[in-house]
Structure formats: structure tokens, C-alpha cells
């Protein structure tokens, strides 16, 4: 049998995977970078190679609609992710107690996660429906509201309502990750803290919090990156409306590149979004590493 040095073997084994990754990720990426410097338009093939330098980028950064979409995205990310973390951790703490029906509730927790985003979006669109929606019915019947409201039709409300739908679907991920971390906490540690004189709140901060902070920040990273890319839920529920109030960056890119068919400037938007995501990811990786060092 021929024996290669270890590194050679590793490279040999990696080659098929690398080829595929370069083919599916690398090539389109390079192509996108290339297009972002051209005036490429889907409807006129002749424009594909018309080089325009940094014009697309300059235009993008001066485009108030794009800047608005960044602001919308920032709102959406901070609202939904922070709510998901808070609700997720609280639910995990509850489900970590011993009570009857706990196993059933834990199983139910998977349900929203298992739902495809599009199905979830359609379900919430029905709930929010201005005429026959469950939310209107509920709120008027318990007397909290006098008349039906168009939840997704109100520019001041729509983004929040979409965020609620996203929170409902994604808090279970945070809850499951936290629950797994909670289950690794030894009972002795809690009891030791009790004997040391710690009350429930102090026990949480000295024993529980340090044990869950690392996994919860991982969940935070994952959710932030996902939420920043939010597209399908917006597409199904509001298509960016009303009055662009729910238009996020991904949706803006989609519109520019595929609805208006301006591939060149769409590509430049897309790359700006990638850059922001990269910064986010790097920040969080740094955070995690820092935590790993102090823990």
C-alpha cells in the first residue's frame, strides 16, 4: 500500500469536497463580484460586460431606500432576536423544572421549529387577516379593541407583526439550546449554593448563568445572522410593504436584481450585505472566543 504523508492524505481526502464548494460557492461569488462592477441588466445581454467601476457601490450607499432597508433590518434583528433570547431562556428555565406534562411540552416546543418558514408566514398572515383573522376576533371579543384592524396594512405596525411571527417560530431554538445547557448543570452545584446561603436569584447568577451564557451566545450569533438575512417570511407576509416599511436588505437586493432586473447594481447591494454579515459574524466569533478564555 502506498503511504502518503499525513498532510497529503488530508488534502487528497478534502479534494472532492473542495471542488464542489469552489464550484457552487466560489464561482457564483466571483461572478457576483464581477457583476457588481458592471452595468449588467437581465433584459439586455449586451450590458453584461459594460464596466462601470465603483459607480454601483457609490449609488447604493447614496440610495435612501437601501439605507432605509438597512434600518428596517436592524429593527427587525434587534426586536426579534432579543425577544427570542429572553423568551427562549425563560421557557427553558420553566421546562427544566420537574412537573407533570413536562415531556409533552418539551415535545411541543419542536413544533414551530419544524414548520417551514413559508408555512409559518402564511399561518400568521391568516391570523393577522384584516377581515377574518383570529387576532382581530380575539382582541375584539375579549374587549381589548373596539374594531378590526389591518395589522399588516399599517406601516407603523407591520414590521413588529412580522417580528412576532419570526419570534414564535424561532424562540424554541434558543429554548432547546438553553435547556440542553441547563441539563448539564450538576444538582450538587445548586445544592452547594443553597447551603452557602444563596437565594434563588443568587443561585441563578452564580450557577445557572455561567453555565448557559456560552451556548446562549452561540444561539444569539446564529439567530442574528439568520435574522439579518430575513427574506422568505417578508416575501410571503408583506412583500416589503406597506410603504416599504418591512423592506429588509435581502428583500431590497432581491427587488433590485430580479424584479428590476438590474443585476449589476443588485450584486453591489448583495456584497454590501455580505460585508455587514461578515462583520457581525466576526464580532460574535470574537465574543465567543473571549468567553471561552474566561470560562
Amino acid at each position: 500500500m502506498v503511504r502518503f504523508p499525513k498532510a497529503t492524505t488530508a488534502w487528497l481526502l478534502l479534494t472532492p469536497m473542495m471542488t464542489i464548494i469552489i464550484g457552487v460557492v466560489g464561482y457564483p461569488l466571483i461572478k457576483t463580484v464581477y457583476y457588481s462592477f458592471t452595468a449588467a441588466h437581465l433584459a439586455s445581454p449586451a450590458t453584461t460586460d459594460r464596466w462601470v467601476g465603483f459607480k454601483n457601490y457609490l449609488k447604493a450607499l447614496g440610495n435612501t431606500k437601501f439605507l432605509d432597508s438597512i434600518e428596517n433590518t436592524a429593527y427587525f434583528v434587534s426586536v426579534s432576536v432579543s425577544a427570542e433570547i429572553v423568551i427562549g431562556v425563560l421557557v427553558a428555565l420553566l421546562l427544566n423544572q420537574t412537573f407533570k406534562g413536562r415531556t409533552l411540552l418539551r415535545a411541543l416546543l419542536i413544533l414551530p421549529l419544524a414548520l417551514p418558514t413559508v408555512v409559518n408566514a402564511m399561518m400568521w398572515r391568516l391570523i393577522y387577516g384584516p377581515d377574518f383573522g383570529a387576532l382581530n376576533a380575539l382582541l375584539t371579543q375579549i374587549g381589548l379593541m373596539a374594531e378590526y384592524q389591518s395589522w399588516l396594512g399599517d406601516p407603523d405596525l407591520a414590521l413588529w407583526m412580522v417580528a412576532v411571527a419570526d419570534i414564535w417560530k424561532n424562540f424554541p431554538l434558543v429554548a432547546l439550546i438553553t435547556l440542553a445547557a441547563l441539563q448539564t448543570i450538576s444538582k450538587d452545584l445548586i445544592e452547594a449554593a443553597t447551603l452557602d446561603g444563596a437565594n434563588a436569584w443568587q443561585r441563578f447568577w452564580t450557577v445557572v448563568f455561567p453555565a448557559i451564557i456560552a451556548p446562549v451566545s452561540v444561539a444569539l450569533v446564529l439567530r442574528t445572522i439568520e435574522a439579518f438575512k430575513v427574506f422568505d417570511i417578508i416575501y410571503v407576509m408583506t412583500r416589503g410593504g406597506p410603504a416599504n416599511s418591512t423592506k429588509t436588505v435581502s428583500f431590497h437586493v432581491y427587488q433590485e436584481a430580479f424584479a428590476y432586473m438590474r443585476i449589476g447594481s443588485g450584486a453591489s447591494y448583495a456584497l454590501i450585505v455580505v460585508l455587514i454579515s461578515a462583520v457581525l459574524i466576526a464580532t460574535y466569533l470574537w465574543l465567543i472566543k473571549k468567553q471561552g478564555n474566561t470560562a
Binding site: 450538576s186 450538587d188 452545584l189 445544592e191 452547594a192 449554593a193 443553597t194 447551603l195 452557602d196 446561603g197 444563596a198 437565594n199 452564580t206 450557577v207 455561567p210 474566561t294 470560562a295
Partner: peptide, 27 residues
């Protein structure tokens, strides 16, 4: 338990992993 003035040493030691030894003892 906290009012009995009784301390306990656990088989698993049950030290707080993120605190220094000084912080553990002084907790």
C-alpha cells in the same frame, strides 16, 4: 438549609467552575 449553620462537602466537590479558588472559598 441556609439557616441551619451547617456546611457540606460534596463528593463531586461542587466548586463553582467560573470562580477562582479564592472566590469559591469566600463565596
Amino acid at each position: 438549609a441556609s439557616e441551619r449553620d451547617i456546611a457540606m462537602v460534596f463528593q463531586s466537590y461542587a466548586l463553582y467552575p467560573h470562580m477562582t479558588l479564592a472566590e469559591n472559598i469566600g463565596f
